[in-house]
């Protein structure tokens, strides 16, 4: 077991997340007892959280390779969901296969800690290569639309999300308290908590809609309340998990809070464009995997480059 190599702060944070889940489960059970039948979706949602948190913790604790494999799997599921939702051309079947192959390759760069290749592989080589592979297919009708949509999906589901994993490849010296795993945990916890905070603030006080035509449930109250709470949480977590000074910790919280909101509404716009409510049904109570990682796809590269610029 490589458990020992994880900083105590990381292990304590993981334990605290399970603590929060226990409290959430009790609260939901209490709600369900007070008003039977009214909270089915909430019950499912908490159950799915248990599954996700358990898998995530196991992979992180087990080894770096296991964590990379889990993030590779998440990218695969997200890309598959995206490619199944968008209109595709029959002629591009094999092109899509190449796009899937980009996933293990991108995570190989992360495993090798080859930053230069990691950062250009999808935006340069896959961008050019997949477009040319489509041309080889010989069908020009709908080419630009197909090439554009494929690249957009690969950027969101693979390039952006793989930034979460690259935090594990950063040298430990940059973050003395908790290393790469500490930064990863900070990003994921703050991003997911931000989703929950914005939802709760919106449910409780939401009056004024931010973007009624894209996401009718998003309100200014939810956004401001959520982002403020996320900044507080970030300030707290940064003490144990990051090398951040106070101003940097608050800035990281702000970036994650706003970035998470942007990711959420952007994927909402995609779903609205495609005419679906949820991106899938993989995670009962949440929808599909894209519904869960939408905010992470935006916060991951933003947080990564913020940290990389100031501390590495």
């Amino acid at each position: 077991m490589i458990l020992i190599t994880l900083a105590p702060a990381v292990l304590w944070t993981l334990a605290s997340i399970f603590g929060v889940l226990v409290i959430a489960s009790l609260a939901v059970a209490w709600l369900a007892r007070r008003k039977p039948g009214g909270h089915g979706e909430l019950v499912l949602r908490v159950k799915s959280w248990w599954l996700m948190v358990s898998l995530f913790s196991l992979a992180l604790v087990f080894s770096r390779g296991a964590a990379l494999a889990l993030f590779g799997l998440i990218s695969f599921l997200a890309l598959k969901e995206y490619l199944s939702l968008i209109p595709t051309r029959r002629a591009d079947r094999r092109v899509l296969f190449w796009a899937y192959l980009a996933i293990p390759v991108q995570f190989l760069w992360v495993f090798m800690e080859w930053y230069g290749m990691f950062i250009i592989f999808v935006p340069v080589y896959m961008f050019l290569g997949l477009a040319f592979r489509m041309v080889v297919g010989g069908v020009t009708q709908g080419f630009l639309r197909a090439a554009g949509m494929l690249h957009w999906g690969l950027m969101v589901t693979l390039f952006s999300l793989s930034h979460v994993a690259y935090l594990l490849a950063l040298p430990a010296e940059g973050n003395p308290p908790a290393g790469g795993p500490g930064l990863l945990l900070f990003l994921v916890v703050a991003t997911e908590a931000n989703d929950v905070f914005q939802y709760l603030w919106g449910r409780g006080l939401g009056r004024h809609r931010v973007m009624p035509s894209v996401s009718p449930n998003k309100t200014w109250e939810g956004l401001i309340g959520g982002v403020s709470t996320t900044i507080l949480l970030a300030a707290l977590l940064s003490v144990w998990l990051t090398p951040f000074s106070w101003p940097h910790a608050l800035a990281a919280g702000l970036i994650i809070g706003l970035g998470g909101f942007c990711g959420d509404v952007t994927i909402s716009a995609v779903k609205r464009d495609l005419g679906v409510k949820d991106s899938g049904s993989l995670l009962p109570g949440h929808g599909g995997i894209l519904d869960r990682v939408d905010s992470l796809a935006f916060t991951a590269p933003l947080f990564f480059h913020f940290t990389y610029y100031f501390y590495y």
């Binding site: 695969f76 969901e81 490619l83 199944s84 595709t88 079947r93 094999r94 899509l96 296969f97 899938g280």
Partner: peptide, 18 residues
């Protein structure tokens, strides 16, 4: 719906689709 995209008649390469 969808499996015809993943492995249609006459193709041997499976491409994942939900």
């Amino acid at each position: 719906h969808g499996l015809g995209k993943a492995l249609p008649k006459g193709e041997s390469l499976l491409v994942p689709f939900f």
